[in-house]
Design a protein around this nucleic acid. Structure first.
Lengths: 220, 220
DNA sequence: GTTATTTGTTGTGTATACAATAACTTTGCT
DNA sequence: AGCAAAGTTATTGTATACACAACAAATAAC
């Protein structure tokens, strides 16, 4: 593995899981020392992350991890909604019913995972990622897939907000199941509508939890 | 301007306008000599272009300009359709009627530009770019705007195909005018539908001209 | 004559050194 | 005491050098 790829992956993980919090400045020498690579591959990693929109040039302070505000959540969903809708539509047209039937079966058991504490939640997230992969494989449209991947990068950052809300996770699992079943039935229009519903609910929930988190942070 | 930005812009232009044709290999030393920058900033530019999807790592032969096939056109529109539809919808909700009314007036005169030979066509393309800018400004949704910009990068490559087809350009201008008028009237649903129509027609035309071009190339 | 191994060349990946720019601090003047 | 200007320091941007890997070609051996 190339040093630049290693640095990119490490920084990406740190940003997504919050180890590098929004607003943190990334000095080149500091980070290259921390990650054990020289400045050249580190800079390549940084330039990739800037293209991803995860870091930005801050006047004077060098590169900093981008902030995520309530506005960002709304704006992110303004991209997510049409993309996921199109993805679901195309998956319903082209996907292998068998693969999605299998995923549907697993989502019917999602409640057990969600109630299964830390490891269960992780397994549920892994299941969601497998669904995303299956959809990407099904649509076979590289440009759309690339846009989806970039989107999911940002979504992963805000997803940290709503984790541990088991009631919401269960509701989301049911909404997702409807989408999958529409794909299995090769019903693009239903898949799109079900996605629309899921998006709307997810956005509402993300905003609520984000709002309450902001309040508690202020109090703390 | 940084050397890496300069190299990026130069390579981008060369790829979009076809000076660097699909399949051409980009050796680092060669390109750094050609563009008058050293390998370090050139590599940064290349890594950006790879993220854009304009060049790709080819087994053994290094980096090459990505091919554009008929399949690519269809796949590109599978991303374009939902993105432009969403953009038009949001522009209709949030755009300044005044700005778009001005653009509508200019599009009503589009025929004169399209018939105005080389410089007229260029002016027509410039007008289209101003429209894209106005829409991006209106929606104020950075994630969607970023996705649109990436999309337009690839569209610019295939747009070279349908230029000089004045009949199609005139028809496209009328379709675009309908979209703009819907934005002026603050009618998101109509804007979305008009965009849908425009996308469908553009795709059909792009495929036809691409198909005929491929044939003539084979013959030649 | 064919195949395998070795050597040479080309090109990428990484590191380091040097140059330029921007920010902060200190000093001097008002 | 406050503001401005200049110098110093830190950090980014660029260039170059070196190392390693891959591919090709040539020679030698079977």
């Amino acid at each position: 593995m190339r040093a630049s790829d290693k640095a990119y992956q490490a920084l990406l993980d740190d940003i997504v899981n919050g180890a590098l919090a929004p607003g943190v400045a990334l000095a080149e020498v500091e980070q290259s020392a921390r990650l054990g690579v020289s400045r050249t591959p580190l800079r390549e990693a940084l330039s990739q992350l800037r293209k991803d929109g995860l870091i930005e040039q801050q006047r004077g302070r060098g590169l900093t991890v981008t902030q995520i505000s309530l506005d960002d959540i709304v704006e992110l969903y303004e991209l997510r909604q049409p993309l996921e809708q199109q993805a679901a539509k195309l998956a319903a047209q082209r996907g292998s019913s068998q693969i999605f039937a299998q995923l549907a079966a697993e989502f019917r058991n999602a409640d057990r995972l969600i109630e299964g504490g830390d490891s269960g939640i992780r397994a549920y997230y892994a299941l969601n990622e497998r669904l995303d992969r299956a959809i990407e494989d099904a649509i076979e449209s590289p440009y759309l897939v690339a846009a989806l991947k970039s989107l999911h990068l940002h979504l992963a950052r805000i997803r940290r907000l709503s984790r541990r809300d088991t009631a919401r996770l269960k509701a989301a699992a049911i909404e997702t199941l409807v989408i999958i079943e529409a794909i299995v039935d090769r019903n693009p229009e239903l898949a799109a509508s079900a996605t629309q519903v899921h998006m709307q609910q997810s956005l509402r929930n993300s905003l609520e939890t984000a709002r309450s988190l902001q309040v508690t942070e202020r109090v703390a």
